[in-house]
Design a protein around this nucleic acid. Structure first.
Length: 567
DNA sequence: CACGTACCTG
DNA sequence: CAGGTACGTG
C-alpha cells in the first residue's frame, strides 16, 4: 500500500462527533435498508478524549488494506473496554504481536485476513459493525465467503453459539447470550445501513443514537475480543514461543514493533539486506492484561499533546511518567483503563512495545536466521482489520508505511516515542550535551542500540541547533537594537527569547523550567552578543568557542528523569 | 574505523 | 525532526 492511497484514505475519513449526552438520547434506531448496490462508505465509531463519540466514514474506493492503520472503532466506555479485555487469555496478553509475514505457515491465514479486510472495505453497503463481526467470525468459525462482497449475513444461532463457546470467559457468557438475542434482532434491522443516511438519521432523530451506540458497543467489543482470541488460538507456534519466554533467554519485554521499510533500510539498523518484511505487516500489541510485573513494567502512555497540564514542578510532572507507570498509576486495572481511555489509549503495553521496537532490527535478523528463535516471538505481528486496531485504541500500532509513520503521533522511529522526545526536550533544560551514559540512565526503558543512541544524540543536536540559532538571532537583534552593554541582556521568563525556547522545548508549558536554564541562556546570549560585537563571526568557526563554554554549563539531570517510573 | 558534532537541507 | 555530509577525535 503506497502512501498516496493511505493519504487518500485518511483524507476521505471524516469525523462526526457526538457528545455522550446526545448519544444517550438515542433510544432506538431503525434506519432505512440500504440498496444493495449503493456506494456506501463504511462507518466506524470511536470514543475520543472527552468521551466524544467519533464517527468515521470511509468513502468507498478509499479503503484500508491490512497494512494500513487501524481506523475505526470503538469502545463507548471504559467499562466496555474492560469487558473487551476480559476475553483475552493470558497467553494472548503475553503476545504482543504476531508476525505472520515471518511464518510461512500462517501465510494462508494472513491472506485470508487480508481478503477479509479487502472484502470489508470494498463491500458497498456493508456496515462496519457487520464487517468487523464477520471478520473475526470468519477467522474463527468459517473460512468461506470471505470475499463475496455481499452483505454479511448473520450467522445462524448454532454457529454463533459454537463461536461463542470458544470464549473462555464463562462468567459473562449468560449475560452475553441474552444480550445477543436482543442485539441480533436489532442487528437484523440495520444490516445494510447507508451510513450517510445514518448520519442524517442521527441528526434528525438523535434520540435513537443510544440504541445504535449500544449495538455498536456490543458488536465491536465482541468483534475485538473474538478477533484477538482467534488470532492467538490459531498461532500454536507463537504459543510455543510464548512458553519459551520464561526460559530466561530474554528478560526483554514483548513489544510490538514498528519499523517502516525506510527505517529498515537504515544502515544503522543492521538490516540492510533489502529484505524488507512484508510491507503489509502490521504490528499489533494485543496485550491487554497486566503483564507480569516482575518481568516487565506496564507503562501508561498518553499523548504528549493531550490534556495540557498546569505548570507543576518536575517532581510532580506526570509527563515524565507517561511511558511507564508512576506509583500513583499503579491502580486497579479498571482505573488504569480509565486513565488510558481518557488519554485516548487502551491499556496496552506500550513499554513492551517500545522496548521491542528498539530491538526490532536485531530481533528481526535473528528471526530470519532462525524462525524458531524464541525471540522471534517478539517480532510476530498480526494483520488485523484496521478497525480492529483502532478499536483497541492501540497507540503503538506500527505500520510499515512512510506516510503512516509520519502521521503516527505516537511513534517516531526506532522505538522512540513522542513521550521520549518530550522528555528529551525537558532534559535539554538541564543538559545541552548529554552523554550516552546520561541518556541511557534517563531512557532506561529503551533498549539502547546504536541506532537508538544515535537518534537520541541527534535529537539533542537538533535541540542545540535551535537553541544556538535563537541565541544568535536574539544577540544580533540586540545589537541592532543598540544594546550597548551585555549587562543589559537578560533572559527572564517573560523575555521573548525564553518564550521562543520554551515554546520549542516545553510547548505544553507544563514543565517548570529550572532557573539554571535561564542563567545558561543568558550566558549564551551574552556570549553570542560579545562574539558578534567583536566581529568574531567573520571566522567560520566562531561559534565553537561559544559551544565550548556552554557545554560546561550542563547541570545534572534531576532524579525524576532517571526514575524507573519515568518514561 | 566508530563516534560525536555541526552544518545544511527538505 | 531526519537525512546526509564533513570534520575532529580517539
Amino acid at each position: 500500500m503506497n502512501s498516496s492511497v493511505w493519504n487518500k484514505s485518511l483524507s476521505s475519513t471524516s469525523n462526526i462527533c457526538l457528545d455522550r449526552c446526545t448519544v444517550n438520547c438515542l433510544s432506538s434506531f431503525e434506519p432505512d435498508p440500504l440498496p444493495s448496490n449503493s456506494n456506501v462508505p463504511s462507518v466506524s465509531v470511536t470514543v475520543n478524549e472527552g468521551n466524544k463519540l467519533s464517527m468515521k466514514i470511509l468513502q468507498e474506493g478509499h479503503y484500508y488494506s491490512s497494512d494500513e492503520a487501524g481506523s475505526g472503532v470503538v469502545c463507548s466506555s471504559q467499562k466496555e473496554l474492560n469487558g473487551t479485555r476480559r476475553h483475552l487469555s493470558p497467553e494472548s496478553s503475553s503476545f504482543a504481536h504476531l508476525d505472520w509475514s515471518l511464518n510461512s505457515g500462517h501465510q494462508a491465514k494472513r491472506a485470508r485476513v487480508e481478503n477479509i479486510i479487502k472484502g470489508m472495505t470494498s463491500s458497498p453497503g456493508t456496515h462496519c459493525m457487520d464487517m468487523m463481526v464477520n471478520q473475526h467470525e470468519k477467522m474463527e468459525c468459517t473460512q468461506q465467503n470471505e470475499r463475496t462482497g455481499e452483505i454479511p449475513s448473520h450467522q445462524d444461532p448454532l454457529e454463533r453459539s459454537r463461536c461463542d463457546s470458544l470464549s473462555q470467559d464463562q462468567t459473562t457468557s449468560n449475560q452475553v447470550e441474552s444480550q445477543q438475542q436482543h442485539l441480533q434482532q436489532l442487528r437484523a434491522k440495520f444490516t445494510r445501513v447507508d451510513e450517510v443516511k445514518l448520519m442524517n438519521y442521527f441528526q434528525s432523530k438523535p434520540e435513537r443514537i443510544k440504541l445504535m451506540a449500544d449495538v455498536l458497543k456490543y458488536e465491536l467489543t465482541r468483534a475485538v475480543s473474538r478477533s484477538v482470541d482467534s488470532v492467538f488460538k490459531s498461532m500454536p507456534l507463537l504459543q510455543a514461543s510464548l512458553n519459551n519466554q520464561g526460559n530466561g533467554e530474554t528478560d526483554v519485554p514483548l513489544q510490538s514493533s514498528v519499523c517502516n521499510d525506510k527505517k529498515i533500510r537504515h544502515s544503522c539498523c543492521g538490516n540492510t539486506e533489502g529484505q524488507v518484511p512484508d510491507v503489509q505487516t502490521e504490528a499489533l500489541s494485543l496485550v491487554v492484561q497486566k503483564p507480569r510485573l516482575d518481568k516487565f513494567v506496564l507503562p501508561t502512555r498518553s499523548r504528549a499533546h493531550h490534556h495540557p497540564k498546569p505548570q507543576v514542578p518536575i517532581s510532580h510532572d506526570s509527563t515524565l511518567h507517561e511511558d511507564q507507570p508512576s506509583p500513583k498509576f499503579h491502580d486497579t486495572s479498571h482505573q488504569h483503563a480509565q486513565r488510558c481511555l481518557q488519554d485516548g489509549y487502551t491499556e496496552v503495553s506500550q513499554g513492551k512495545f517500545e522496548m521491542f521496537d528498539t530491538q526490532w532490527d536485531s530481533v528481526k535478523v535473528r528471526s530470519k536466521v532462525n524462525s524458531r528463535s524464541m525471540r522471534s516471538s517478539q517480532t510476530h505481528t498480526v494483520s488485523v482489520g484496521p478497525m480492529l486496531l483502532e478499536s483497541l485504541c492501540l497507540p503503538h500500532v506500527k505500520i510499515e508505511s512512510d506516510s503512516l509513520v509520519k502521521n503516527n503521533l505516537y511513534m517516531l522511529n526506532e522505538g522512540l516515542t513522542m513521550n521520549h522526545l518530550k522528555k528529551a526536550k525537558l532534559m535539554f533544560f538541564y543538559t545541552r550535551y548529554p552523554s550516552s551514559l546520561v541518556l541511557k540512565t534517563c531512557f532506561h526503558n529503551v533498549q539502547f542500540t546504536r541506532c537508538i543512541t544515535s537518534q537520541l544524540i541527534k535529537w539533542f543536536s537538533n535541540f542545540r541547533e535551535f537553541y544556538y540559532i535563537q541565541m544568535e538571532k536574539f544577540a544580533r537583534h540586540a545589537l541592532m537594537e543598540g544594546v550597548a552593554d551585555v549587562r543589559g541582556l537578560t533572559v527572564g521568563r517573560e523575555s521573548e527569547l525564553f518564550r521562543a525556547l520554551n515554546m520549542h522545548y516545553n510547548k505544553a508549558n507544563d514543565f517548570q523550567v529550572p532557573d539554571r536554564f535561564l542563567e545558561v541562556s543568558e550566558i549564551t546570549l551574552r556570549e553570542f552578543y560579545i562574539a558578534i560585537s567583536m566581529g568574531k563571526d567573520r571566522d567560520p568557526s566562531w561559534k565553537k568557542a561559544i559551544y565550548k563554554v556552554i557545554c560546561k554549563l550542563d547541570s545534572d539531570i534531576p532524579a525524576e528523569f532517571k526514575s524507573h517510573h519515568c518514561g
